[in-house]
Design a binder for these strands. Structure first.
Lengths: 140, 140
DNA sequence: ATCATTGCAAACACTTTGCATACGC
DNA sequence: GCGTATGCAAAGTGTTTGCAATGAT
């Protein structure tokens, strides 16, 4: 498992240091879109020497190489997602949870269509769809 | 013009103070999605007594009442848009400009469809679509 | 006179930076 | 031994908060 991740990092041209592998592993195992702070607070239990700077460095490296995507919905927090495939997000304004949303095919088609027409003028590298509201659990 | 804006504020239950009207007016006249800081830097030329706190207070009040929408794409800046209708945004990663994007009808339909299905479980109050890339001017 | 808005300064949270140290090949 | 990753502390940025002053009715 760790070796697999190591290989993935190498393939992307990232030197697979111990910390980088572990942080990437954490993300793959925790798909609830943690913030840098959550990752730090969690991981320091296992790796007490880990510093927040390393977290930030690594997250920047990983997302720079396209291994993870960064999600900005609320202003005051960036979240990270190891799933870089096309999908949407839903943020509950009450509990703060961030859910992955499977986009319906019409929406996916619409996105491609829209991107195609935008590509006439601009170069598009990324697209995001997100929703806000109150989640199932919080509706009461 | 100012009277119109005043009326709009009143209709939303916002006490139409001079500063609030002026800030709202600024947003209506500057649809390039300014940040709080840009608004402040610009407006202080006309209203030297204006403070940043008032900008923040007013922006929060206006967006809380649904008069403007706040756009979070990059982590370190919130931008404000007086156009609350359904449309997308495109952020140029090079020059930082934020463009309004007209969404194609397939995409709009896909959004409604997706929201409808989400509404089975959650309550959806807001949706956003945005793109990132390099804009026409920056492509060279 | 009362109540809400305003403005300053300090506090805050998150992230980045500079630089010295430690690690791995 | 060299080059890169790491870690600490400090600086930076954008935003919020507490509280006193101001303003409007």
């Amino acid at each position: 498992m760790l070796d697999d991740l190591k290989t993935i990092l190498e393939q992307k041209g990232i030197i697979p240091s111990y910390h980088r592998i572990k942080i990437y592993e954490y993300l793959v195992n925790n798909k609830d879109h943690p913030t840098a702070d959550i990752i730090y607070t969690d991981m320091i239990k296992q790796i007490p020497t880990l510093s927040k700077t390393t977290i930030y460095n690594t997250l920047k490296t990983l997302s720079g190489k396209g291994l993870i995507s960064s999600i900005t919905i609320e202003d005051n927090e960036v979240r990270f997602d190891p799933d870089t495939g096309l999908h949407g997000h839903f943020k509950c304004l009450r509990c703060g949870n961030l859910y992955d949303i499977e986009l319906c095919s019409t929406l996916k088609n619409g996105l491609s269509e829209c991107i195609n027409s935008l590509e006439m003028e601009h170069r598009i590298t990324d697209s995001q769809v997100y929703f806000k509201g109150i989640c199932k659990k919080c509706r009461t």
